[in-house]
Design a protein around this nucleic acid. Structure first.
Lengths: 345, 345
DNA sequence: ATTTTTACCGGAAACGTATCCGGTATTCAA
DNA sequence: TTGAATACCGGATACGTTTCCGGTAAAAAT
């Protein structure tokens, strides 16, 4: 199945000139006359010439491709970020290869290696929950530009894009306090994730600022598996003195929490208020609508891609050692009915 | 920035053998002795050899890459399908490049051309709502294997993967009839989309089977823009004799419809029942939970990738002209409270 | 002991493109 | 009119790999 596509040599033969001249003409090189350039362009169109990206990549040692490795592209937060990444990528002439780790460390390592082998020009990664060894990132970071998204590893030297998790959590808890809640629980995420840690810290500091005692019983750590989200919620509600509010590490957890609360015939927000984190698009459609901390995932995706491509192209120009930036996006508290002051729809 | 990665020649030099032998050893060619093969493998590991996919692709005229073009990767139906595609792709050693058309015909054409230029080994496509010219698909279909997903164009000769839209719609309407509804409206999708057409037909036939008259006023065609979804719903509710049920072409439309219905202080399902199509993951979290037709999007994604890769690899073996199959996935009606027989949670 | 087979290996060409280097013809300055 | 500068082009090489072709040495068959 010879693919029979026309090459630069075909054009050369057609015009009785050399391949190198054709190449120069197609690349707007100045050392080619106007006349032959026009002839080449015309012939290229006529013969339906499509440059072979593989061959170009081989000599230029680049693929115009960036790899994106996310835990789960099904989650709105990630798919929306990917959408932003894709948008700037095509703007700048790059392709994006997506992979998902399914929150598995082993898949993550193997996919990073695959992408490395494929000679992607750069890599965007959001580590899996189970990842707590970062050699594979270190290694890839030496070869190709890397930018970390959302879940970041501090000691790895690269661009980073995150949202202000600490501030978001702090404000969410402050809001609950203002609603009159005094026994605020927090279903936290896995400890090795930067986002979990920062949100937890925001929660703690908000309580401290209000001179409230911290009760570790109120701060279960969730694996972020569906069943465990439910279990955490049940255990909170079964405490001798159950909480009057639950702030969850993300929206999916808030969803499950709400289901459990309803199943126990408790009323949201009267008996238990709920606040999530993400503002995934369904949050506003729930009943009661979910109060949550909004992250600009699409814009974050765009910024990530811009940083990455910027680094790729500056690297090509053999720039001085680039200094890495961490882009922090402000979050915004969206107050809806799951935490309101007992005014129903 | 010479990337300094070790090549096959480095290994050859290291072992004082020829590059061709190294290549053969790495590819388990039989014409190489056990001893040298071991030596090569060891040296490859020691020197951290990573085969250059570009070079391999150049000589083999393949990229091990498949392109996926979807209207909007943010929608759960698509992201879940992509997830399935990605899964079998890595299983079989392929990379997946994703692009989104944003429902724009022009973007679609330009992206198809980009992917073609990048020499992807195959292409999965779900056309945009605004696409009603299919030359670009015809052309690409001549060059590389193509499989159409969900929204398919009948007269283009390729594998196709769809769900049984007709049957799903038929059963949804039948269910509404059994609930006692008699004035069932249908918010339909754009007419050029195969899915819209089939679901509309299922709706019509179910009504006819029940000897109910068809009222075109009850069948608005929606562009699938959010505002238009709302407008269609409002117009239905404002009719002199408003419907007692609305069957929507997909879940996002059902969502908006429910919001509008609630805003009018009507009760679901007592005043108006609602049934959607997709079973996007949020459907069960709504209040009332949404009755909808479930499509196995993940499995559909898997099947699509399997068909495509199958075609790619059979093409390599210069098979006889392959005959194309259309894989139809059965849908399943998930009855929840938005259509129940007025028993509340 | 001679021929044939087998096992193994190296050299060279090829994939499609970019680019370095050198060369010719033209134009300009002196 | 001569020398140098300029404009343009072709040939060769390189990128990293696979694969065809031919060749040598050992093993097997005669």
């Amino acid at each position: 199945m010879k693919s029979e596509s026309t090459t630069i040599k075909d054009i050369a033969r057609f015009l009785n000139i050399s391949a190198s001249t054709v190449s120069r003409a197609l690349n707007n090189h100045h050392e080619v006359s106007y006349k032959t350039r026009q002839a080449v362009l015309e012939a290229a169109k006529k013969l339906d010439y499509q440059p072979n990206a593989l061959a170009i990549g081989l000599v230029k040692n680049q693929t115009n491709t960036i790899g994106v490795l996310m835990p789960d592209i099904t989650q709105p937060f990630y798919s929306s970020a990917i959408s932003g990444i894709e948008e700037v990528a095509v703007e700048k002439g790059y392709y994006v290869i997506i992979c998902q780790s399914d929150e598995s460390y082993h898949k993550e390592v193997s996919l990073v290696n695959m992408l490395n082998k494929h000679r992607v020009d750069g890599l965007i990664i959001c580590t899996a929950t189970t990842t707590d060894d970062y050699h594979h990132l270190q290694i890839v970071n030496l070869n190709i530009p890397l930018v970390q998204f959302d879940r970041v590893v501090k000691h790895i030297d690269s661009h980073k894009v995150v949202s202000n998790d600490y501030q978001g959590a702090y404000e969410a808890v402050k809001h609950l306090l203002e609603c009159g809640c005094r026994r605020i629980a927090h279903i936290a995420g896995p400890e090795q994730l930067s986002v979990s840690k920062n949100r937890r810290q925001g929660y703690l500091d908000a309580l401290r600022a209000a001179n409230l005692a911290i009760d570790e019983q109120y701060i279960p750590t969730c694996t972020l598996e569906k069943e465990h989200m439910q279990l955490c919620t049940e255990q909170l509600l079964d405490l001798p003195i159950p909480p009057d509010a639950i702030f969850t590490v993300n929206d999916p957890t808030a969803l499950e929490a709400m289901q459990v609360i309803k199943r126990k015939k408790l009323v949201i927000p009267d008996d238990v208020a709920v606040v999530g984190f993400d503002d995934q698009f369904l949050a506003s459609y729930l009943n009661p609508a979910l109060t949550t901390v909004s992250q600009p995932s699409f814009a974050m995706g765009r910024a990530t891609a811009e940083l990455l491509i910027g680094q790729i192209e500056s690297k090509r120009k053999e720039n001085e050692k680039s200094t890495f930036t961490t882009k922090v996006f402000d979050t915004q508290l969206i107050v809806r009915n799951s935490s309101g002051k007992r005014k129903d729809e």
